[in-house]
Design a protein around this nucleic acid. Structure first.
Lengths: 335, 335
DNA sequence: GTGCGCTACGTGAACGTTCACGTGGGTATA
DNA sequence: TATACCCACGTGAACGTTCACGTAGCGCAC
């Protein structure tokens, strides 16, 4: 029962070891392991049992080498704890599975890691890469050489392809909705990552200037807890806004919490709009009005794009290799 | 600029093609590609440029074959849309990254897939497997041969190792808390997956029998939306319970929604307890009381276990290869 | 001019598997 | 009895890379 432990760190058994132990040839072992024809049932079982005892399992490298690669793609994601990213990852995995591709996931949000670290781990393992890479997208492409990289939300990165979002249009949707609700002074709760001001924030500022809405900006870590305490602090300081637009839904959830605790009614005293459209929004009280992305289609679009790049039907860095997706305003209760 | 497209599906360029084009040997190309010593700067750049133009990238299979495998592990997960699983996945990825391992994730919840499908996709790619595999854990182990499988929440599965949860203890915590709040009739909202009654539900039934609490059981798909409509239907039917214990936090969130809509006050008219301890619970209104798992430690425990199994310091199927973790009751507002 | 060392390269072998054949022996068919 | 065929199994070659050497050319010191 106990395998013939060749020592914990001993070299793994190879097909030749098994063949020798069973007094047959390599090929017969291959036939036994892969349930191929041309072998007697008796020999097949004897070899399989022996292989199990010796702890033999075929090297996936040797197999891949001779059989021709199954494509496998890397997925680099900042933080699996934000429900947006798993939802995205899920759609990528699904679309990749349809093509028989494997997906290797790496999240680099923990600790001090950046997208570059994740890409460095992924690069030797994969044929292509999808990820939220800003602001290091070009370094990642360099790491991948000529293998295609699709960067999300990282416009003008030097990658083979990209998917961006039309934040100007999104900001228009949100701010005009807020304006129609009578909001005059909107707070944009921005993420403190990715430079001085995110492109979402910049777009909101531009649209606000057009519209005559007063827009102030506050930064916090893009998590519910950080957003909550940032807004709590603000409320305690006496600052008053009649509308809040958050960098993402998770932060919006924190905002709702903070407002409830400070006794501010939503949307009565203050309207709140999130961004992403994750399912969480429907579970909150009040239900979150949000700029929603069709999460399914984002991942699918990225994989389709990659497929085109890999097959050559889309040229690297050509205009078709860059898509722009739009948000939709889903009006629920919070605004 | 355009690569010398050998046709979209043409064979990939190999190191020999590059060597021939540059009029150098394989080894010199290797030196150029891997930034090794013993090559002039001029040659290095010339080769690198040529390689890029030809679309050459080293085969990871050949590389892996000759350099010895980097361990990479598979992670099979039913549904990335339930925040519990990404949280778990995240901790696995983190712990694996510390050891320099790669993680290949596959979620099999979409469509009609089972854990066996995911394992079949993963098996040729990985050295070991972690996953929520019930009730197919033994088939998955068969697929993996002698490579270790760590099954979560799948007691007595024929896998190399496993991590289970002490649902009896968890049920005691929850039901005694509910009892102390005066609950007499508790509804267990069970998942409709994995057999007639989940082990969570069975444990609750056993404890309820001891305690003299009346326990009824209702099944639904383990999602917030399904739980919501199941409970709404029940409320419309006039069925009354003064406490609800849910299979997981996501279902509990749906329960809270349904109760609010039916005008039932929580915890006044009905107490609600979830299970998992995902961050979402804190964002709900009322905040969710839950049987909480230290999500970080679950993934870490699985990876530690796998490390032991791979290195041989823990024997397959030995008592040390099976851990049992305990839930803690986190009392917030809903009960 | 011999010896030494350095630089920039080239060559045989090996990694572990599968593919495409080749082979010996037995059994049915003509 | 000769022929054909099938079954179970074996052998050379190939996949694409890196490792461990080997080597030609050059400069420099003695």
């Amino acid at each position: 029962m106990t395998p013939q432990t060749p020592g914990p760190r001993g070299k793994r058994a190879t097909i030749l070891d098994v063949a020798a132990a069973a007094s047959v040839s390599r090929q017969t072992v291959t036939r036994a392991m892969n349930d191929m024809a041309g072998i007697s049932q008796e020999t097949r079982e004897r070899v399989q049992k022996l292989a199990a005892e010796m702890g033999y399992s075929p090297s996936r490298f040797a197999k891949g080498l001779v059989q021709g690669a199954r494509t496998s793609i890397g997925l680099a994601i900042p933080d699996l704890t934000n429900p947006y990213f798993p939802a995205f990852a899920s759609s990528v995995v699904e679309a990749a599975a349809e093509r028989g591709w494997n997906v290797v996931v790496d999240d680099y949000g923990h600790g001090t890691g950046s997208a570059v670290d994740a890409a460095a781990r992924l690069a030797p393992q994969v044929d292509a890469l999808i990820g939220y890479l800003a602001p290091h997208a070009n370094e990642v492409q360099a790491l991948m050489g000529r293998r295609p990289v699709v960067a999300l939300d990282s416009p003008d990165a030097g990658t083979a392809g990209g998917i961006s979002f039309d934040y100007l249009q999104a900001a228009r949707l949100a701010l005009s909705h807020l304006a129609s609700r009578g909001c005059r002074h909107v707070l944009f709760l921005d993420s403190d990552q990715g430079g001085p001001a995110s492109s979402r924030s910049a777009a909101a500022a531009a649209v606000a200037a057009e519209t005559g809405i007063r827009l102030t900006r506050l930064q916090a870590h893009p998590s519910a807890a950080a957003a909550r305490s940032a807004v709590a602090l603000l409320a305690a300081g006496g600052e008053r806004a009649d509308g809040i637009l958050a960098f993402n839904d998770l932060m919006a959830a924190g905002v709702l919490k903070a407002l409830r605790e400070s006794g501010t009614s939503v949307p009565g005293d203050c309207s709140v709009i999130g961004m992403d459209g994750i399912p969480l929004g429907e579970l909150l009280t009040p239900e979150l009005t949000t700029l929603s992305l069709d999460l399914r289609s984002v991942g699918r679009a990225a994989v389709d794009l990659l497929d085109g790049l890999l097959s050559g039907s889309i040229q690297d860095r050509s205009p078709e290799a860059f898509l722009t997706l739009q948000h939709q305003l889903v009006v629920r209760q919070s605004a």
